[in-house]
Computed example of a mutant assay.
Amino acid sequence: MIFPQAVTIAGSDSGGGAGIQADIKTFQERRVFGMSAITAITAQNTMGVQAIHPVPVEILAAQLDALNDDFTITAVKTGMLVDVTTIDTVVSRLRHFSWGALIVDPVMIAKGGAPLVSEDAIATIREKMLPLASIVTPNIPEAEALAEMLIETNAQMETAAKYIQKLGVPTVIIKGGHSQDSEESRDYVLDGDTSFWLDARRIETTQTHGTGCTFSACITAELAKGASMEYAIRTAKAFITSAISQPLGIGNGHGPTNHWAHRKEHQE
């Protein structure tokens, strides 16, 4: 039996709450061996992003080639891809690798509001990454950028998901954490011809750094193990809800989620 193996292609978060750090922690919690290809080094903490240094594309390509030469990878996710050159490098490799499901988390804006990709990178994600993807997991601001429309209602979430799906990605999840609903966080899932809503009680907290990374990483881990798309999505929703509901209280700003919170729930 080959142990499940997954890769995250994303930026490094020096604060440990998001990016490849959050992804690897999530892979580990879901019993999947995690690997990474770093696209950028960031200087950040719970207060915000202080600096971003893109990794030279030659080094990024070398990381990806090294992984492909030695591991049996069954799922891969992307996070912060920084700029067009980085995206083109990732796309050129993924087109020729057999790495199973591709989960695109279109990381564009940090929790504190700092932009994490260049303007022209958004169009490149739309045109080149999404046609390769199995699933894309934007939050509302990211979905607005991808669908080029305003999203303020459930109906608009559904319309945006259909637009994004037509860009070539079969499964779209628009996460509702940024909605104005004070009672629930509603995610809309469009999986092929099937659609459904994922509801969770909204938790009032500032400890939400890395929620998008963690959610998409959990989906990646489950798909790496051979789970169905719906099972992977529902498992990820439960996982991130637990991680948010049991905060660690780390840092002075948007603190990280609790990646091992689900263990306590299973013990109770």
Rank of each mutant, 00 (worst) to 15 (best):
S228T: 14
K166Y: 07
D88A: 09
C213W: 07
Y163F: 13
F215I: 11
D191V: 14
A143P: 04
T235S: 13
A40E: 08
K25S: 00
T257V: 15
A147E: 08
P54K: 05
D191G: 13
W99N: 01
S118R: 06
T46C: 06
A221C: 06
D105M: 05
P54T: 08
M35L: 13
E29F: 04
I20N: 01
R263K: 11
F215C: 06
I38L: 06
G249V: 14
S216Q: 11
T46P: 00
D193S: 15
D13W: 03
T39N: 02
D70W: 04
T46W: 04
G192F: 07
V49I: 13
I59G: 04
D69P: 03
I122Q: 01
A200T: 15
R31D: 14
G251C: 14
H178K: 06
A51R: 12
P4A: 08
Q28Y: 11
L81Y: 02
A160F: 02
W197S: 09
E158L: 07
F97M: 09
T235K: 11
D13Y: 04
R31S: 13
K264T: 15
R202V: 14
I140Y: 00
A75V: 07
Q180H: 15
P115R: 08
V84W: 06
P247I: 10
F239E: 05
A18L: 08
E183Q: 13
E152R: 10
T89I: 08
R202S: 08
G168R: 09
T211E: 12
P131W: 08
P138R: 05
Y163A: 14
A227D: 05
K111Q: 15
T8F: 01
G255M: 12
G176N: 14
A133G: 05
A101H: 03
G212F: 02
N45V: 07
G34N: 04
S36G: 00
I219P: 00
T211F: 05
T137C: 12
H259F: 09
E144I: 07
G192M: 14
K264A: 15
D193P: 01
E222Y: 04
D191C: 14
V32W: 03
G177L: 15
L130H: 01
